[in-house]
């Protein structure tokens, strides 16, 4: 009576399951998927972009990892349906950074700011006085102003690309950048 039960099928299923686990542990079983290649080639620059927006490295790394995970879950390892993965990633990092800053601002309303929310002391010490002053002034801008300036002056995106990334109009980008530069100029004492 026990031979009637589907034990061979059960064993085959469990064998396949363990093989799947082994393949997942190895990483890329049959050639690197497109998303893994993209991950290895773009991760560092995206973390740098996120650091410029959120200030601290751990949060920036979390942001980038979340964006890659969301990209993989939505479009699979071969990035089907993604015409421009780089633009997708930059937009994702920008949005995730904005969300992280919003969460941090909400948390600051209830508790003291965590020590990792600002750059590490050694990082600050390695910068020149002029750079430190500029970064301090940059932290005083709104999230949107800061994003526009980072995308414009570090990512070297055009106004149209920034508008696409932030999903705003080009006029908004232009006015936001102008306003942000005016604030920086005021705070840095330049005319």
């Amino acid at each position: 009576m026990l031979s009637v039960l589907p034990f061979p099928a059960l064993f085959a299923w469990l064998r396949g399951l363990s093989a799947e686990v082994r393949a997942a542990g190895r990483g890329d079983p049959g050639g690197a998927p497109a998303i893994n290649e993209l991950y290895h080639s773009r991760r560092l620059s995206l973390v740098r972009l996120a650091v410029l927006m959120v200030d601290d490295l751990p949060t920036a790394e979390d942001v980038v990892q979340d964006v890659f995970t969301a990209l993989y879950r939505r479009h699979g390892p071969d990035l089907r349906g993604v015409t421009d993965p780089n633009a997708y990633l930059v937009t994702g990092v920008t949005n995730a950074a904005r969300s992280a800053l919003r969460r941090r601002r909400t948390a600051r309303a209830y508790a003291a700011p965590p020590p990792e929310a600002i750059p590490a002391a050694e990082d600050e010490a390695l910068l020149g006085e002029s750079d430190r002053e500029m970064l301090r002034a940059l932290r005083g801008l709104t999230v949107r102003q800061r994003q526009v300036l980072v995308l414009r002056y570090w990512s070297e995106l055009t106004e149209g690309e920034i508008a696409d990334t932030l999903r705003v109009s080009r006029g908004t980008v232009k006015s936001t950048a102008h306003r942000a530069l005016s604030i920086l100029r005021e705070r840095l004492g330049e005319r």
């Binding site: 991760r43 910068l127 570090w154």
Partner: peptide
């Protein structure tokens, strides 16, 4: 100055400083 500050700050982040994270797959 803005360009210089952003470049200097981004240059502090190197591949060695990143923590190990597995690929998304």
């Amino acid at each position: 100055r803005l360009r210089s500050a952003l470049t200097a700050r981004a240059g502090q982040i190197t591949a060695e400083r990143l923590r190990f994270e597995p690929p998304p797959t």
